[in-house]
Design a protein around this nucleic acid. Structure first.
Length: 351
DNA sequence: AAAGCGGGGAG
DNA sequence: CTCCCAGCTTT
Protein backbone atom coordinates (compact mmCIF):
# COMPACT_ATOMS: atom_id res chain seq x y z
CA UNK A 1 0.00 0.00 0.00
CA UNK A 2 1.44 3.37 -0.96
CA UNK A 3 1.48 6.42 1.28
CA UNK A 4 -1.70 7.92 -0.15
CA UNK A 5 -3.71 4.73 0.36
CA UNK A 6 -2.23 4.15 3.81
CA UNK A 7 -3.39 7.57 4.91
CA UNK A 8 -6.90 7.10 3.56
CA UNK A 9 -7.07 3.64 5.11
CA UNK A 10 -6.40 4.93 8.61
CA UNK A 11 -8.68 7.91 8.24
CA UNK A 12 -11.59 5.73 7.14
CA UNK A 13 -10.89 3.16 9.82
CA UNK A 14 -10.62 5.61 12.72
CA UNK A 15 -13.60 7.62 11.50
CA UNK A 16 -15.67 4.45 11.38
CA UNK A 17 -14.48 3.56 14.88
CA UNK A 18 -15.50 6.93 16.29
CA UNK A 19 -18.98 6.45 14.89
CA UNK A 20 -19.56 2.74 15.49
CA UNK A 21 -17.40 1.73 18.44
CA UNK A 22 -18.94 -0.42 21.13
CA UNK A 23 -19.62 1.15 24.50
CA UNK A 24 -17.52 -1.03 26.77
CA UNK A 25 -16.72 -0.49 30.48
CA UNK A 26 -12.95 -0.27 29.91
CA UNK A 27 -13.49 2.42 27.29
CA UNK A 28 -14.82 4.74 29.98
CA UNK A 29 -11.49 5.02 31.73
CA UNK A 30 -7.92 6.04 30.96
CA UNK A 31 -6.48 4.34 34.03
CA UNK A 32 -3.65 2.11 32.74
CA UNK A 33 -4.31 -0.38 35.54
CA UNK A 34 -7.94 -0.83 34.58
CA UNK A 35 -7.10 -1.13 30.89
CA UNK A 36 -4.44 -3.68 31.80
CA UNK A 37 -7.01 -5.73 33.75
CA UNK A 38 -9.41 -5.63 30.81
CA UNK A 39 -6.74 -6.75 28.35
CA UNK A 40 -5.74 -9.70 30.50
CA UNK A 41 -9.35 -10.78 30.92
CA UNK A 42 -9.89 -10.47 27.19
CA UNK A 43 -7.05 -12.87 26.35
CA UNK A 44 -8.77 -15.72 24.53
CA UNK A 45 -12.07 -14.64 26.05
CA UNK A 46 -15.08 -12.97 24.47
CA UNK A 47 -16.15 -9.45 25.27
CA UNK A 48 -19.62 -10.45 26.49
CA UNK A 49 -18.12 -12.94 28.90
CA UNK A 50 -15.63 -10.45 30.29
CA UNK A 51 -17.94 -7.50 31.00
CA UNK A 52 -19.52 -8.73 34.26
CA UNK A 53 -16.19 -10.08 35.52
CA UNK A 54 -14.48 -6.78 34.76
CA UNK A 55 -17.09 -4.78 36.65
CA UNK A 56 -17.03 -6.98 39.72
CA UNK A 57 -13.25 -7.21 39.69
CA UNK A 58 -12.67 -3.47 39.68
CA UNK A 59 -15.32 -2.92 42.30
CA UNK A 60 -13.36 -5.31 44.51
CA UNK A 61 -9.90 -4.11 43.46
CA UNK A 62 -10.23 -0.45 42.38
CA UNK A 63 -6.48 0.23 42.50
CA UNK A 64 -3.19 -1.54 41.85
CA UNK A 65 -2.61 -1.71 45.60
CA UNK A 66 -5.94 -3.40 46.27
CA UNK A 67 -5.06 -6.16 43.85
CA UNK A 68 -1.42 -6.38 44.93
CA UNK A 69 -2.39 -7.22 48.51
CA UNK A 70 -5.42 -9.42 47.79
CA UNK A 71 -5.37 -13.01 49.16
CA UNK A 72 -4.76 -15.41 46.30
CA UNK A 73 -7.77 -17.56 47.10
CA UNK A 74 -10.06 -14.53 47.03
CA UNK A 75 -8.49 -13.45 43.74
CA UNK A 76 -9.10 -16.87 42.17
CA UNK A 77 -12.69 -16.74 43.41
CA UNK A 78 -13.13 -13.46 41.53
CA UNK A 79 -11.73 -15.16 38.44
CA UNK A 80 -13.85 -18.31 38.90
CA UNK A 81 -15.50 -19.39 35.64
CA UNK A 82 -13.37 -17.16 33.45
CA UNK A 83 -10.77 -19.85 32.79
CA UNK A 84 -7.02 -19.73 32.22
CA UNK A 85 -6.52 -19.11 35.92
CA UNK A 86 -2.79 -18.49 35.60
CA UNK A 87 -3.80 -15.14 34.11
CA UNK A 88 -5.07 -14.05 37.51
CA UNK A 89 -1.91 -15.05 39.32
CA UNK A 90 0.33 -13.56 36.67
CA UNK A 91 -1.67 -10.33 36.74
CA UNK A 92 -1.27 -10.05 40.49
CA UNK A 93 2.45 -10.78 40.22
CA UNK A 94 2.76 -8.08 37.58
CA UNK A 95 0.77 -5.60 39.65
CA UNK A 96 2.93 -6.32 42.70
CA UNK A 97 6.00 -5.62 40.63
CA UNK A 98 4.60 -2.28 39.50
CA UNK A 99 3.85 -1.30 43.11
CA UNK A 100 7.31 -2.30 44.31
CA UNK A 101 9.58 -1.32 41.43
CA UNK A 102 7.72 1.44 39.63
CA UNK A 103 6.12 3.33 42.50
CA UNK A 104 2.68 2.02 41.50
CA UNK A 105 2.89 3.59 38.04
CA UNK A 106 2.39 1.20 35.11
CA UNK A 107 5.45 1.56 32.82
CA UNK A 108 4.81 3.55 29.64
CA UNK A 109 7.39 1.88 27.41
CA UNK A 110 7.53 -1.55 25.81
CA UNK A 111 10.86 -2.51 27.31
CA UNK A 112 9.68 -2.23 30.92
CA UNK A 113 6.04 -3.20 30.59
CA UNK A 114 6.95 -6.38 28.68
CA UNK A 115 8.95 -7.63 31.65
CA UNK A 116 5.84 -7.74 33.81
CA UNK A 117 4.38 -11.18 34.48
CA UNK A 118 1.55 -12.01 32.10
CA UNK A 119 2.26 -9.09 29.79
CA UNK A 120 3.17 -10.38 26.33
CA UNK A 121 3.60 -8.52 23.04
CA UNK A 122 -0.13 -7.99 22.53
CA UNK A 123 -1.03 -6.78 26.02
CA UNK A 124 2.01 -4.51 26.11
CA UNK A 125 0.97 -2.82 22.88
CA UNK A 126 -2.67 -2.58 23.90
CA UNK A 127 -1.96 -0.86 27.22
CA UNK A 128 0.68 1.43 25.72
CA UNK A 129 -1.50 2.55 22.83
CA UNK A 130 -4.84 2.80 24.63
CA UNK A 131 -3.73 4.19 27.99
CA UNK A 132 -0.62 6.12 26.97
CA UNK A 133 -1.28 6.99 23.31
CA UNK A 134 1.96 5.34 22.21
CA UNK A 135 2.20 4.24 18.58
CA UNK A 136 2.76 0.58 19.44
CA UNK A 137 1.41 -2.48 17.65
CA UNK A 138 -1.11 -4.74 19.42
CA UNK A 139 -1.52 -7.81 17.26
CA UNK A 140 -4.11 -10.38 18.30
CA UNK A 141 -6.22 -12.88 16.42
CA UNK A 142 -8.61 -10.18 15.26
CA UNK A 143 -5.85 -8.01 13.85
CA UNK A 144 -4.22 -10.91 12.06
CA UNK A 145 -7.53 -11.84 10.46
CA UNK A 146 -8.31 -8.28 9.34
CA UNK A 147 -4.86 -7.54 8.00
CA UNK A 148 -4.45 -10.93 6.36
CA UNK A 149 -7.45 -9.92 4.26
CA UNK A 150 -6.67 -6.24 3.71
CA UNK A 151 -3.05 -6.93 2.72
CA UNK A 152 -3.71 -10.45 1.41
CA UNK A 153 -1.12 -12.07 3.64
CA UNK A 154 -1.16 -15.83 3.13
CA UNK A 155 1.29 -16.85 5.81
CA UNK A 156 0.10 -19.38 8.38
CA UNK A 157 -1.10 -17.43 11.41
CA UNK A 158 -0.74 -20.52 13.59
CA UNK A 159 3.04 -20.22 13.35
CA UNK A 160 4.68 -18.05 16.03
CA UNK A 161 7.01 -16.35 13.56
CA UNK A 162 4.10 -15.05 11.51
CA UNK A 163 3.07 -12.59 14.23
CA UNK A 164 6.12 -10.48 13.36
CA UNK A 165 4.84 -10.01 9.82
CA UNK A 166 1.65 -8.47 11.18
CA UNK A 167 3.47 -6.38 13.77
CA UNK A 168 5.51 -4.83 10.98
CA UNK A 169 2.34 -4.26 8.97
CA UNK A 170 0.77 -2.41 11.90
CA UNK A 171 3.90 -0.30 12.29
CA UNK A 172 3.45 0.83 8.69
CA UNK A 173 -0.28 1.49 8.98
CA UNK A 174 -0.78 2.79 12.52
CA UNK A 175 -2.22 6.25 13.08
CA UNK A 176 0.52 8.08 14.97
CA UNK A 177 -1.98 10.62 16.25
CA UNK A 178 -4.61 8.19 17.51
CA UNK A 179 -2.79 4.87 17.99
CA UNK A 180 -5.19 3.62 20.67
CA UNK A 181 -8.21 4.28 18.49
CA UNK A 182 -6.46 2.72 15.52
CA UNK A 183 -5.66 -0.50 17.36
CA UNK A 184 -9.11 -0.74 18.87
CA UNK A 185 -10.66 0.02 15.50
CA UNK A 186 -8.92 -3.01 13.99
CA UNK A 187 -10.28 -5.15 16.82
CA UNK A 188 -13.83 -3.80 16.54
CA UNK A 189 -13.71 -4.26 12.81
CA UNK A 190 -12.64 -7.86 13.33
CA UNK A 191 -15.41 -8.41 15.87
CA UNK A 192 -18.25 -6.73 13.99
CA UNK A 193 -17.46 -6.67 10.26
CA UNK A 194 -14.39 -8.67 9.33
CA UNK A 195 -15.61 -11.79 11.16
CA UNK A 196 -14.06 -15.28 10.89
CA UNK A 197 -16.93 -16.58 8.78
CA UNK A 198 -19.25 -14.57 6.57
CA UNK A 199 -17.41 -11.24 6.72
CA UNK A 200 -19.75 -8.31 6.07
CA UNK A 201 -17.62 -6.76 3.34
CA UNK A 202 -20.45 -4.59 2.03
CA UNK A 203 -20.54 -2.76 5.36
CA UNK A 204 -16.77 -2.46 5.67
CA UNK A 205 -15.32 1.04 5.93
CA UNK A 206 -12.01 -0.05 4.38
CA UNK A 207 -13.15 -2.43 1.64
CA UNK A 208 -11.73 -0.05 -0.99
CA UNK A 209 -8.28 -0.77 0.42
CA UNK A 210 -8.81 -4.51 0.92
CA UNK A 211 -7.04 -6.81 -1.52
CA UNK A 212 -9.04 -9.86 -0.43
CA UNK A 213 -12.27 -7.99 -1.18
CA UNK A 214 -11.13 -7.08 -4.65
CA UNK A 215 -9.94 -10.64 -5.22
CA UNK A 216 -13.18 -11.99 -3.78
CA UNK A 217 -11.50 -14.42 -1.39
CA UNK A 218 -11.86 -12.76 2.01
CA UNK A 219 -13.54 -15.87 3.33
CA UNK A 220 -10.42 -17.93 2.51
CA UNK A 221 -8.25 -15.86 4.83
CA UNK A 222 -6.52 -16.02 7.21
CA UNK A 223 -4.71 -19.29 6.61
CA UNK A 224 -4.37 -21.29 9.79
CA UNK A 225 -2.96 -24.81 10.04
CA UNK A 226 -2.78 -26.21 13.54
CA UNK A 227 -5.41 -28.72 14.43
CA UNK A 228 -6.09 -29.71 17.99
CA UNK A 229 -6.05 -33.29 19.12
CA UNK A 230 -8.29 -33.76 22.12
CA UNK A 231 -7.81 -36.60 24.53
CA UNK A 232 -10.45 -38.23 26.71
CA UNK A 233 -10.00 -39.07 30.38
CA UNK A 234 -12.56 -40.75 32.62
CA UNK A 235 -12.82 -39.95 36.32
CA UNK A 236 -14.91 -41.14 39.20
CA UNK A 237 -15.70 -38.16 41.41
CA UNK A 238 -16.44 -38.70 45.10
CA UNK A 239 -18.81 -36.47 46.98
CA UNK A 240 -17.77 -37.95 50.30
CA UNK A 241 -19.61 -36.94 53.47
CA UNK A 242 -18.55 -37.66 57.05
CA UNK A 243 -20.89 -38.12 60.03
CA UNK A 244 -20.93 -34.39 60.73
CA UNK A 245 -22.21 -33.67 57.23
CA UNK A 246 -18.92 -32.23 56.06
CA UNK A 247 -17.58 -32.99 52.61
CA UNK A 248 -14.11 -34.04 51.49
CA UNK A 249 -12.38 -31.41 49.35
CA UNK A 250 -8.90 -31.13 47.92
CA UNK A 251 -6.77 -28.35 46.53
CA UNK A 252 -5.13 -29.02 43.18
CA UNK A 253 -1.34 -28.61 42.78
CA UNK A 254 -0.01 -25.11 42.23
CA UNK A 255 1.13 -25.94 38.71
CA UNK A 256 -0.59 -27.35 35.67
CA UNK A 257 -4.26 -27.66 34.85
CA UNK A 258 -6.58 -25.65 37.13
CA UNK A 259 -3.69 -24.83 39.44
CA UNK A 260 -4.66 -24.04 43.06
CA UNK A 261 -8.35 -24.57 42.36
CA UNK A 262 -10.40 -26.80 44.69
CA UNK A 263 -12.21 -29.96 43.69
CA UNK A 264 -14.06 -33.01 44.96
CA UNK A 265 -11.63 -35.95 45.07
CA UNK A 266 -11.46 -37.68 41.69
CA UNK A 267 -9.84 -40.91 40.61
CA UNK A 268 -9.01 -41.76 37.04
CA UNK A 269 -10.94 -44.78 35.83
CA UNK A 270 -8.62 -47.53 34.56
CA UNK A 271 -8.92 -51.20 33.82
CA UNK A 272 -6.20 -52.04 36.30
CA UNK A 273 -7.73 -50.88 39.54
CA UNK A 274 -11.10 -50.31 41.15
CA UNK A 275 -11.73 -46.58 41.57
CA UNK A 276 -13.36 -46.94 44.97
CA UNK A 277 -10.44 -48.94 46.34
CA UNK A 278 -7.96 -46.39 45.08
CA UNK A 279 -10.06 -43.59 46.56
CA UNK A 280 -10.09 -45.18 50.01
CA UNK A 281 -6.36 -45.89 49.92
CA UNK A 282 -5.28 -42.51 48.59
CA UNK A 283 -7.40 -40.45 50.98
CA UNK A 284 -7.20 -42.67 54.07
CA UNK A 285 -10.94 -43.07 54.35
CA UNK A 286 -13.46 -45.93 54.47
CA UNK A 287 -16.67 -45.94 52.48
CA UNK A 288 -19.54 -46.83 54.84
CA UNK A 289 -22.38 -46.77 52.33
CA UNK A 290 -23.51 -45.27 49.07
CA UNK A 291 -25.96 -42.38 49.23
CA UNK A 292 -26.30 -41.93 45.49
CA UNK A 293 -24.34 -44.13 43.12
CA UNK A 294 -24.97 -41.91 40.15
CA UNK A 295 -25.41 -38.43 41.54
CA UNK A 296 -24.38 -36.84 38.27
CA UNK A 297 -22.70 -37.87 35.02
CA UNK A 298 -21.42 -35.39 32.48
CA UNK A 299 -18.59 -34.30 30.21
CA UNK A 300 -16.43 -31.24 30.58
CA UNK A 301 -14.58 -30.13 27.49
CA UNK A 302 -11.30 -28.22 27.73
CA UNK A 303 -9.55 -27.03 24.61
CA UNK A 304 -7.05 -29.88 24.74
CA UNK A 305 -8.89 -32.63 26.60
CA UNK A 306 -12.26 -33.96 27.70
CA UNK A 307 -13.15 -35.07 31.19
CA UNK A 308 -15.87 -37.68 31.52
CA UNK A 309 -17.06 -37.44 35.09
CA UNK A 310 -19.17 -39.91 37.04
CA UNK A 311 -20.08 -38.57 40.45
CA UNK A 312 -20.93 -40.77 43.39
CA UNK A 313 -22.14 -39.56 46.77
CA UNK A 314 -20.89 -41.71 49.63
CA UNK A 315 -20.82 -41.79 53.41
CA UNK A 316 -17.30 -42.21 54.73
CA UNK A 317 -15.26 -42.24 57.90
CA UNK A 318 -11.70 -41.10 58.29
CA UNK A 319 -9.21 -43.92 58.96
CA UNK A 320 -6.03 -41.93 59.52
CA UNK A 321 -4.54 -38.52 58.85
CA UNK A 322 -5.79 -36.86 55.65
CA UNK A 323 -3.22 -36.17 52.92
CA UNK A 324 -1.90 -32.63 52.43
CA UNK A 325 -4.30 -30.30 50.65
CA UNK A 326 -7.27 -32.47 51.63
CA UNK A 327 -9.86 -31.47 54.24
CA UNK A 328 -13.43 -31.86 55.43
CA UNK A 329 -15.49 -28.72 54.87
CA UNK A 330 -19.11 -27.66 55.21
CA UNK A 331 -21.08 -26.76 52.12
CA UNK A 332 -20.95 -23.11 53.14
CA UNK A 333 -17.16 -23.22 53.41
CA UNK A 334 -16.92 -24.93 50.04
CA UNK A 335 -18.95 -22.20 48.39
CA UNK A 336 -16.31 -19.65 49.36
CA UNK A 337 -13.51 -21.56 47.62
CA UNK A 338 -12.47 -21.12 43.99
CA UNK A 339 -13.62 -24.11 41.99
CA UNK A 340 -13.55 -24.88 38.28
CA UNK A 341 -16.87 -24.97 36.43
CA UNK A 342 -17.25 -28.79 36.38
CA UNK A 343 -16.95 -28.83 40.19
CA UNK A 344 -19.45 -26.00 40.50
CA UNK A 345 -21.90 -28.11 38.55
CA UNK A 346 -21.55 -30.89 41.10
CA UNK A 347 -21.81 -28.47 44.00
CA UNK A 348 -25.03 -27.15 42.53
CA UNK A 349 -26.85 -30.48 42.66
CA UNK A 350 -26.10 -30.99 46.36
CA UNK A 351 -29.15 -30.25 48.52
C1' DA B 1 8.74 -24.16 17.57
C1' DA B 2 5.43 -26.69 20.16
C1' DA B 3 2.69 -27.74 24.00
C1' DG B 4 -0.17 -26.54 27.95
C1' DC B 5 -3.70 -23.78 29.72
C1' DG B 6 -10.73 -22.80 30.44
C1' DG B 7 -14.79 -21.90 29.10
C1' DG B 8 -18.36 -20.57 26.19
C1' DG B 9 -20.75 -18.99 21.93
C1' DA B 10 -21.57 -19.26 16.99
C1' DG B 11 -22.43 -21.73 12.80
C1' DC C 1 -19.86 -31.64 15.78
C1' DT C 2 -15.79 -27.58 14.67
C1' DC C 3 -13.84 -23.26 15.18
C1' DC C 4 -11.94 -19.70 17.83
C1' DC C 5 -11.96 -15.94 20.81
C1' DA C 6 -8.55 -8.40 22.67
C1' DG C 7 -2.51 -14.71 24.30
C1' DC C 8 1.13 -15.96 27.64
C1' DT C 9 4.40 -19.14 29.75
C1' DT C 10 7.24 -22.96 29.78
C1' DT C 11 10.01 -26.32 27.65
Amino acid sequence: MNYQYTNEFRLNLVEWFNKEKRDLPWRRTSDPYKIWVSEVMLQQTRVDTVIPYYNRFLEKYPTLQDLAFAPQEELLKMWEGLGYYSRARNLQAGVKEVVEKYNAVVPDNRHDISKLKGVGPYTAGAVLSIAYQKAEHAVDGNVMRVLSRVLHIEEDIALPKTRKVFEEAVEMLIDEQYPGDFNQALMDLGAMICTPTSPKCLLCPVRDYCIAFSEGDADKLPIKSKKVKTKKVQFKVFVAMNQEGQCLLEKRPSEGLLADMWQFPMIEVTEKADSEEVFQENYNVQILNHIDKELLKFKHIFSHLTWELECTQVQIEQKSELPDAVQFLTIEQIKALPMPVPMLKILNVLN
